[in-house]
Design a protein around this nucleic acid. Structure first.
Lengths: 239, 239
DNA sequence: GTCTATACACAGATAGAC
DNA sequence: GTCTATCTGTGTATAGAC
């Protein structure tokens, strides 16, 4: 699937979730007309991410948000009960979309190496389609209340474990050389995250998401190639 | 050089720079006795990093800092003229130590591949010895005033360019296969940064800085090995 | 040099009109 | 549903005593 098609799928999911947000947070959203909720929630989310990703969530004031959305402060508080509440909604929204999309994508792939490739591509595409959301989640993770924080952290580890398991499976199948899957999975995660954390940099250099995916997969597959000293834990001296 | 020796060198440099801070910021530091300045600046820097790295710099209040250092708010303002000023000092301090140490370390190494290995190790050791400083710089970069922000960004790109140049030199010398050095340098940077951004994770798994360095160097050197399709920009299908 | 006490601005949040 | 006006707490920064 091309990135273009992928993006469409994500946008649909996002709109659907904005609609469901009313159902998921009936206690905090005081507005009852669905169309209005969806329209304004999308405006609020977009504005909040724009401001918070530039100056940080804690530096963003409700007056900033009011100016950026065109809604008054009074109106804003009809969509969340506190600033902290808004933050929780943003995290929740991202989590839901992520889970939904990744499950769909991974169901299709077969065989460890193919599943590994699919997982890498899906994560990269997803972080491209929802860059502001991922950037926000990464940067604001430590400001979350403990409960929310735990959920975010768990998601992070879950992804890493998925990669580690796929690497281990590929090693068992003999398609990759024996290495420490856990540590390498952490490195893969780091490279995946760099894509959405430094997006401005890659955009300026005209690196596309597909090009980045190719490079990342090349790193992974070359690293996994059988080497004389692969199991000693030491690096080879010269090529 | 082992990490242990390296750490000693860094600590010396840090102390020296705390002493020099008085000379570098004579307008903002109102206290004149050098010993007092060094003692209290170290306390202030450590406390500020501790609080800011947990809750964010903008969420840290002067009252927090006062409680953590044991100094009154009035006393704090004898060491900087504003909160923003403190932030600039923190960034400045890190930049100075980094520049000083890296120049020393790199001067010793010869040959592109050896210089590459040295650079990777030095960056990793440095970020280990000054983890709170690097974490802070990364997370707070976007809250800096434009001028400071530019300096931080430039430093980031400078490092990346160093890696790209060393990769390119190694390719020219035939010790690494031809690849896109710029893009690969960005990936290396991402992996280096993960070490200080997720230190708690690696600590919990008992991954030492030396182990991480080995793994990272292995990724680099395996990726650079000659491959049939290395120059096509496409990945190979199977190992 | 360091303290206590305080000025002053601005934050988040709400009340009540429309 | 949305607005304007306002309450109240908390933030940065300073003045002046010791």
């Amino acid at each position: 699937m091309s990135y273009r098609d992928f993006k469409k799928q994500v946008d649909l999911s996002k709109a659907a979730l904005c609609r469901e947000a009313l159902a998921r947070h009936p206690d905090t959203i005081r507005v009852k007309k669905e169309a209005t909720v969806v329209r304004n929630l999308e405006k609020i989310f977009a504005a909040a991410l724009r401001i918070a990703n530039r100056r940080g969530f804690s530096a963003m004031t409700m007056r900033d948000l009011s100016a950026e959305t065109g809604l008054s402060m009074g109106a804003l508080y009809a969509y969340f009960s506190s600033k902290e509440d808004l933050l929780a909604m943003l995290q929740d929204q991202r989590r839901q979309v992520t889970r939904r999309i990744l499950e769909e994508r991974l169901a299709a792939a077969e065989g460890p190496l193919e599943r590994l490739r699919t997982a890498v591509r899906a994560h990269l595409y997803l972080s491209e389609a929802m860059q502001p959301w991922f950037f926000f989640a990464y940067m604001e993770a430590r400001h979350l209340p403990p409960a929310e924080r735990e959920k975010t952290l768990a998601g992070e580890l879950e992804t890493e474990t998925l990669f580690a398991d796929l690497l281990a499976a590929a090693i068992d199948a003999g398609t990759l050389a024996p290495r420490d899957p856990r540590l390498f999975a952490a490195l893969i995660k780091a490279m995946l995250q760099d894509w959405y954390l430094k997006r401005w940099k890659y955009a300026r250099r005209r690196v596309t998401v597909d090009r980045y995916a190719e490079e990342l997969l090349a790193v992974i597959e070359n690293y996994g190639r059988a080497l004389g000293s692969a199991d000693t834990g030491k690096t080879v001296d010269r090529a």
